[in-house]
């Protein structure tokens, strides 16, 4: 259950950015979480709720966009959906595969006033 420590980082980034942009109330946060990132959406939501007492986050909605796991073959450059975390290129069978997406954990944007 490291989602609370992740959320503390998220909330810190939002506080800082809101102060810089003179935003007093955040209404919506869009978080991107890759399918290979070990952060459970339910636990992130629960952790986010614990900041509702703070003026800046009162009534704010957390939306989570999931990114599928995709691999890029370093040998033949083929990009493919990774199923069951099998990092083998379906085109040339090379095991030399880079994680192209699925490890994301970032705030895409937030809305506020």
């Amino acid at each position: 259950m490291h989602e609370l420590s992740l959320m503390m980082g998220i909330v810190d980034l939002l506080r800082q950015s809101a102060a810089e942009n003179n935003i007093k109330q955040i209404t919506k946060v869009m978080l991107v979480v890759g399918d290979m990132t070990m952060a459970a959406p339910d636990a992130l939501q629960f952790a986010f709720q614990s900041f509702q007492d703070e003026e800046l986050f009162r009534g704010a909605v957390l939306e989570i966009r999931k990114e599928p796991v995709r691999g890029e073959c370093k040998d033949c450059s083929h990009i493919f959906d990774v199923k069951d975390f099998a990092f083998l290129c379906p085109s040339c069978s090379s095991p030399n595969v880079r994680v192209a997406s699925g490890r994301e954990l970032y705030i895409d944007y937030y809305e506020g006033e």
Binding site: L6, I23, E111, G112
Partner: peptide, 14 residues
């Protein structure tokens, strides 16, 4: 309403 794009990695500090 203001929309602020961040693209901020959550684990940046770490």
């Amino acid at each position: 309403m203001v929309k602020v794009r961040m693209a901020a990695p959550v684990l940046q500090q770490n």
